[in-house]
Simulated scan of single mutants.
Amino acid sequence: MGEISSFQLGVIGALFLSVASSVSIVICNKALMSNLGFPFATTLTSWHLMVTYCTLHVAHRLNLFESKPIDTKTVVLFGILNGISIGFLNLSLGFNSVGFYQMTKLAIIPFTVMLETIFLNKQFSSRIRLSLFLLLVGVGIASVTDLQLNLMGTVLSLLAIMTTCVGQILTNTIQKRLSVSSTQLLYQSAPFQAAILFVSGPFLDQCLTNKNVFAYKYSPVVLAFIILSCLISVSVNFSTFLVIGKTSPVTYQVLGHLKTCLVLGFGYTLLHDPFTERNLIGILIAIGGMGLYSYFCTQESKKKQGDLCLGSSQIKDKETAALLAGVHQDKESHEVKKSSKDSVV
């Protein structure tokens, strides 16, 4: 029971850290990009990853965690894939309307469910699927406004969905199959993610904004927000790997939509963004879907634990019965031998 409670506390802590840090960085980046006019999202992400790696490297040097060697090919491909997925998401936002981009993010959950069902033989009950459907409907109502389609944007969105889903599934699979922690995996892969975005970021940002990140005039306020964003990103990146490792890619996406609802709420209260009844209704439906998802996952987890305990108990009972039967048989055999010996005498 102690181990289960400790694990549950770890999951709750990871979820809370992920929500708090993600909402914080969204608000920080929104102020940086919308209010201060710093539009270079991909380049900023590369700085986030570099700061994350440097922070983890210092922590490693201070013996705060142990580095576990992982196959170089696996780490490189994993890091590059995650870097590419970030690039595709940014390109999707640049070539699509905000509404279609939100639909792209919503499509990640069903696509992840499909991939895990096909390739990992993971089963999702009808109750889980229903709760996910309610969640997606709610977030869609709250956040999707316009849907403007174009060929390039659609292709980029599909690539963003595929790379993001595969990357998140691998984040979970690598941690479990190679028995590495979220910190160890992030420490190993962050340099490769940062490298690909550091190289491609300025080019992508130039294509999307027609501005050069190196020609931008950095005021002290902008620099302060960039530093703050990079510091928060350490927690964001760490909690992302932690949540996916402790739960699942689908749960992480559900958590991501909770962040969307919170960002909408904070945007209204702190940044005075427009907020309508449609937003409110959508958020309430989404929260209902999240609540059902959490409840059903908890119930199914308890059922699995009960089945495991019952199975182990039955195995133990069978072993005990077999042992007793063996002892009884030996005793009978001994008595038969003794009887035979007495009759001979």
Score class of each variant (00 low, 15 high):
residue 249 P to W: 10
residue 144 V to T: 03
residue 88 F to M: 14
residue 121 N to A: 08
residue 155 V to G: 12
residue 135 L to G: 12
residue 218 Y to Q: 03
residue 198 F to E: 02
residue 49 L to M: 07
residue 163 T to P: 14
residue 32 L to V: 05
residue 343 S to L: 15
residue 194 A to T: 01
residue 69 P to E: 08
residue 167 G to L: 10
residue 123 Q to V: 14
residue 54 C to D: 00
residue 220 P to H: 10
residue 162 M to V: 15
residue 117 T to G: 04
residue 97 S to A: 05
residue 116 E to L: 13
residue 136 L to W: 05
residue 156 L to Y: 15
residue 203 F to E: 02
residue 50 M to A: 04
residue 20 A to P: 02
residue 265 G to F: 07
residue 320 T to M: 14
residue 311 G to E: 12
residue 7 F to E: 10
residue 205 D to F: 02
residue 82 N to E: 10
residue 274 P to H: 05
residue 259 K to W: 00
residue 254 V to D: 09
residue 83 G to H: 11
residue 157 S to I: 01
residue 275 F to P: 07
residue 280 L to V: 00
residue 237 N to S: 03
residue 82 N to S: 10
residue 70 I to S: 09
residue 288 G to L: 13
residue 239 S to W: 00
residue 106 L to Q: 06
residue 342 D to Y: 14
residue 127 R to M: 13
residue 5 S to P: 02
residue 8 Q to D: 12
residue 186 L to I: 01
residue 163 T to C: 15
residue 28 C to T: 06
residue 260 T to V: 02
residue 198 F to C: 05
residue 183 T to V: 09
residue 123 Q to M: 10
residue 126 S to I: 15
residue 3 E to N: 12
residue 70 I to V: 15
residue 129 R to C: 09
residue 299 Q to S: 13
residue 187 Y to L: 01
residue 316 K to N: 14
residue 144 V to H: 06
residue 247 T to P: 02
residue 276 T to S: 11
residue 85 S to N: 11
residue 258 L to P: 07
residue 88 F to A: 10
residue 75 V to D: 12
residue 45 T to W: 04
residue 126 S to R: 15
residue 227 I to T: 14
residue 73 K to F: 09
residue 314 Q to K: 13
residue 89 L to G: 14
residue 306 G to T: 12
residue 191 P to C: 02
residue 199 V to C: 09
